[in-house]
């Protein structure tokens, strides 16, 4: 239905999770909500609750401990959902790539739809990525469940 996709495109609610890294991208994400950049003009809200959110914004490199939380958050979100990896750390591990406890990129833990490699990602770039993610959200018509996601009846 065209009007459903249109509504999805115009009202993506965000869930931000900082998995590690240096905070730079996280702070730039918050800066994107403030008057100079104002994400709310695109209907985006930072909900902070996985059950309400449509787009999961991952910033920072993923280690064993935060990976578990990230996975948990992703599974709590209802379909349709899109994951955006903001910053080079979330994409590949970045400068910390060789670290002894890191997964090389958030896509080893959750299926990532969009990559935004930057250090640190500028608010303009974040807005661009989120708008593209909103377009993706509009295209997904109850997307196929990702292979490694648990079946709905098993969800707690």
């Amino acid at each position: 239905m065209a009007w459903v996709s249109s509504a999805r495109k115009r009202s993506p609610w965000l869930l931000h999770y900082e998995t590690g890294g240096c905070n730079g991208c996280a702070i730039e994400f918050v800066a994107a909500l403030t008057p100079l950049y104002d994400l709310e003009r695109f209907g985006m809200l930072n909900t902070g609750n996985p059950k309400h959110a449509d787009i999961l914004v991952v910033t920072g490199c993923v280690n064993a401990r935060s990976g578990r939380v990230l996975r948990n958050l992703y599974e709590q979100m209802s379909e349709p959902k899109v994951v955006v990896a903001v910053g080079v750390c979330a994409c590949t591990g970045g400068i910390f790539h060789d670290g002894y406890n890191l997964a090389p990129g958030a896509d080893k833990v959750v299926p990532v739809d969009l990559y935004l490699p930057n250090c640190a990602a500028r608010p303009e770039a974040i807005i661009d990525a989120l708008l593209t993610a909103a377009d993706l959200l509009a295209e997904t018509r109850r997307r196929d469940q990702h292979a490694h996601q648990r079946a709905p009846d098993q969800q707690g």
């Binding site: 590690g20 890294g21 280690n63 670290g99 406890n101």
Partner: peptide, 14 residues
Amino acid sequence: LGYMHRGIEQLATV
């Protein structure tokens, strides 16, 4: 703690 550990001190020795 431990959600953001990246092992920077170890990386510096490499």
